[in-house]
Amino acid sequence: MSFINYSSREINCKIVYYGPGLCGKTTNLQYIYTKTNPEAKGKMISLATETERTLFFDFLPLSLGEIRGFKTRFHPYTEPGQVFYDASRKLILKGVDGVVFVADSQIERMEANIESLDNLRVNLSDQGYNLDKIPYVVQYNKRDLPNSAPLDELKKVLNPTTVPEYEAVATTGVGVFDTLKAVAKLVLTELKRGG
């Protein structure tokens, strides 16, 4: 839920990176963190297990600059992708303004992608949101791997509504900022429409 403060002239928006376990959600945020100027970012918070799997969420506050005198602050979160953390995933989606679905391009992860996408739809709907109506983009990550599925197949299965979609290699940063910019733009456009 965007928070617009007319007193401090700030727009705050929440973006959630969703996807199956080990698809690269945290890697997306880590790349953004390393490539963003210090004055435009806060600390990256990672609530992770000892084996560096996301336990609750990762969080990275970003300032994108000013728009008509309002500072725009984006708060990207990741959710824990492992199936058994469903209760936590629901909590992270509370108040979301935009969603990035990070798909794992590897053929053997296709089922996990589908399961996660179904789970996203259900959990959003539990919070009163409809995936077809909120700002939403899809990222096909790990495109560099030899066992990655053909793009057409991924698109057909994971993006039937043809929302903006990006190929990515989050470890090297390919497609990472394109994805972030796309969802941030959609969120602001939605805000403008609602404002």
């Binding site: 839920m1 928070f3 403060n5 007193s7 009163g128 909120i134 969120v187 939605e190 429409r193």
Partner: peptide
């Protein structure tokens, strides 16, 4: 369904 917003105004912020 649009994205719901929370807003804050000068008067309430001061209070």
């Amino acid at each position: 369904m649009g994205t719901p917003q929370v807003v804050m105004f000068e008067e309430e912020q001061q209070q």
